[in-house]
């Protein structure tokens, strides 16, 4: 029995066939995950009531970077920081966008991390959320040298030296 024509049939022998029953199975899995107690009862840490993201586009000599922040509830003040620049806003409604744009100079072939932060709340009781964006060439960090060991009591350890 075949499913609707829109579905994909992968015929490679070493792969799962995407047949008509796969889609309902995915739906069931998603519903089960969304309603599972483990997902619902996660106890997260206190957060700042703001959504933050960084956007960038290449310009001559570097990148134009914008921090976009939107409080998740009405707040008395918003303070944005981006690459050393700061901008303060007065009371801001839930969902209202606040932005700060800077140009970051970058030599060809170079790379840098740009940090943006949005702090919201009342003076003296601000909470912030940060975002980091990599510009230019990727960071070249070699992972630390590590080895896996199993101790006599059965504990498995990743040892870094």
């Amino acid at each position: 029995m075949r499913g609707p024509a829109s579905e994909i049939q992968v015929t490679a022998t070493d792969r799962l066939a995407y047949t008509w029953w796969v889609k309902p199975l995915w739906v069931l899995c998603v519903v089960a995950l969304a309603t599972s107690p483990a997902a619902a009862e996660r106890h997260a840490k206190p957060a700042a009531p703001v959504m933050v993201r960084l956007e960038s586009r290449a310009v001559a000599g570097g990148y134009q970077v914008t921090i976009v922040a939107a409080p998740t509830r009405a707040v008395p003040a918003v303070e944005l920081s981006l690459a050393g620049k700061h901008l303060a806003f007065a009371a801001t409604a839930a969902g209202q966008r606040r932005e700060l744009t800077v140009v970051v100079a970058l030599a060809p072939g170079a790379g840098t991390d740009v940090i943006g932060s949005a702090a919201v709340g009342a003076t003296g009781a601000m909470r912030n959320k940060a975002a980091v964006l990599r510009l230019g060439s990727p960071r070249r960090a070699s992972p630390p040298r590590s080895i896996t060991r199993t101790l006599p009591d059965g504990r498995a350890v990743q040892e870094v030296r």
């Binding site: 619902a40 009862e41 106890h43 997260a44 840490k45 206190p46 957060a47 009531p49 509830r73």
Partner: peptide, 28 residues
């Protein structure tokens, strides 16, 4: 204090009781 905050939920779990629905929270 973040590490200890999360361990506070362990205390509720093993020594006390919690009926929290979980999810995000921001002081509001």
């Amino acid at each position: 204090t973040v590490i200890l905050h999360e361990s506070g939920h362990y205390i509720e779990d093993v020594e006390g009781r919690s009926d929290s629905p979980g999810g995000g929270h921001d002081g509001g």
